[in-house]
Design a protein around this nucleic acid. Structure first.
Length: 481
RNA sequence: GCUCCCAUCGUCUAGCGGCCUAGGACACAGCCCUCUCAAGGCUGCGGCACGGGUUCAAAUCCCGUUGGGAGUGCCA
């Protein structure tokens, strides 16, 4: 086993928004580094020039920072850029070639396919192994896979054995002289003294190749750990193309970091105890690679949202108001990169923090996502009630609707402007015409808030104010005809 | 096709040979609470893929079947 400092790494390629699966893998590595007082190395694998965009790198750093993996933490190292290590990759390739572990091949992929077809076996058949070709333009460098077996010792899966005969002589250097992922990855891991490679299960099949490379390079392989992949409803690996996987998107919708981290950690692993809602300290204390599940896990947005709702409700009022702010003002949270800030439904100058503070306790128990907050309080900051036509028509369909609303209005003029007295008035009106409060409040609610659902009505009206309430009732009465 | 991985409620999981009549959470349904909607409380629905072994005893160990998934690029 490894002695000395544990060095973990997270090696994403900057090819798009930050993937939730990547977030989970990063979290595993981070937690392990924290537990062992080790190091979390961030390496940006930017060797495929065709797919890389520089802006994604900052996105990765921002995303990591959001979930608590801070670049300024002493356990954090990097970012390193794979592209900066090209010389080391080339040198390793030469070492492998000189040592007889690799050879050049000039076959095109078409030729390889033809040979495979003729032989009835898929893959490259080692045609150039003994041809003694030297380097040259268009020639790829291939690894000479030795005979025998390769046994991978995996921290989550145990012992996995591969028959080397099933591993073809894979490419190390492209025809244009650039290294491919598998070589660059291993060389970088060696250069960065990585001791533990914790990554998604999709990498398990090429682990024997990497292990062979470590050995050919004369270095003892790291501890491997392959964690199950995250899948969609169809049980397919989460993909950027067809699934909603961008961490930034969940953030923009109002998922808070703690909820995201907690939820991600319940996928493939579970905290001990009765509840799944646990803080990060508990997670870092209890997490064990050995207890990570072996099967893929469905990334369930519904459950994520439920977690988020719990986190929101657990906050103090101040905290809650604080996290709501960006959705109310359009500023406050760094929607970095290509992510656009949410649009606020009212003119910014109409927003009043003190007013929101009064209604906030009632919205706190009613939202799962922060992005749902504006629609719940927009009636307070819009010049007029944002009338939902269908709700309006339905509320005013009853024959008692207009008359009862008029009666309420009359009494609203002189009453004490408190939730209790408003409720008493409405109840009184209801009793006189034998209509239950639940039904009777509908016209009043739609007239003043524009919607059939929302925060408690009387508290809302108190915050709205007497004058505005009366004005909106008049408008609604006129509209109802 | 080949290689590898996987298999407990619909979903995420607890369980690592007897504490299991299989526990929790999300979702769903009902009830309570209630000015709408939530939140909260209670209740319910629902699972060890199948077949063989091993054992006094198997969800737990072994083998097979079936079913999923991943990999199979001069992508990472």
């Amino acid at each position: 086993m490894v002695s000395g400092t544990h060095r973990y790494r997270f090696a994403p390629s900057p090819t798009g928004y930050f993937h939730v699966g990547g977030a989970r893998t990063a979290l595993y590595n981070w937690i392990l580094a924290l537990q062992n007082d080790g190091v979390f190395v961030l390496r940006i694998e930017d060797t495929d020039e065709s797919r890389n965009e520089p802006q994604w790198t900052q996105g990765i750093i921002d995303a990591l920072n959001w979930i608590g993996i801070s670049a300024s933490d002493p356990h954090f190292e990097g970012p390193y850029f794979q592209s900066a290590y090209a010389e080391a990759h080339t040198a390793a390739a030469k070492q492998l070639y000189d040592g007889g572990h690799a050879y050049y091949c000039d076959l095109t992929s078409e030729q390889i396919q033809e040979r495979a077809k003729a032989a009835g076996k898929p893959g490259y058949d080692g045609f150039s192994r003994e041809r003694g070709l030297g380097p040259g333009s268009g020639r790829v460098l291939r690894f000479k896979v030795p005979g025998g077996n390769t046994v991978v010792h995996d921290e989550v899966r145990g012992r996995v054995e591969f028959d080397n005969a099933t591993i073809e002589d894979f490419v190390l250097m492209r025809g244009n002289g650039t290294p491919v992922f598998i070589l660059a990855n291993v060389v970088d891991d060696i250069a960065m003294k990585i001791t533990h490679v914790v990554r998604a299960e999709e990498h398990l099949p090429n682990t024997p190749k990497q292990q062979l490379l470590w050995e050919a390079l004369g270095v003892a392989p790291p501890v491997w750990a392959h964690v199950p992949v995250l899948v969609n409803e169809q049980r397919k690996k989460l993909s950027k193309r067809r699934d909603k996987v961008a961490l930034e998107q969940y953030r923009a919708e109002g998922v808070v970091a703690d909820a995201m981290v907690n939820y991600l950690m319940t996928l493939g692993w579970a905290p001990t105890g009765e509840t799944e809602i646990v803080d990060f300290t508990t997670i870092t204390r209890d997490f064990k690679l050995g207890s990570v599940n072996h099967s893929s896990a469905f990334f369930d947005v519904k459950k994520l949202n439920a977690f988020n709702g719990e986190y929101l409700r657990k906050m103090s009022l101040d905290e809650f108001v604080g996290v709501c702010e960006p959705w109310l003002t359009g500023v406050g949270v760094p929607w970095s990169g290509a992510q656009t800030a949410p649009s606020v439904p009212w003119p910014v100058e109409r927003f009043n923090r003190a007013v929101f503070l009064r209604i906030a306790p009632h919205v706190q128990t009613r939202v799962a996502l922060l992005s749902e907050v504006p629609a719940m309080v927009d009636f307070l900051f819009l010049a007029d009630a944002p009338i939902d036509t269908a709700a309006f028509d339905k509320a005013f369909a009853a024959d008692w609707a207009r008359s009862s609303l008029r009666t309420m209005r009359e009494q609203f003029v002189t009453t004490t402007w408190s939730a209790e007295s408003l409720k008493t008035i409405v109840e009184g009106v209801g009793a006189s015409i034998d209509v239950k409060l639940g039904k009777l409040q509908a016209p009043l609610r739609v007239a003043t808030t524009g919607r059939s659902v929302g925060p408690p009505l009387f508290e809302s009206l108190v915050v709205l104010g007497r004058d505005e309430t009366l004005r909106r009732i008049d408008i609604a009465l006129a509209r109802a005809g």
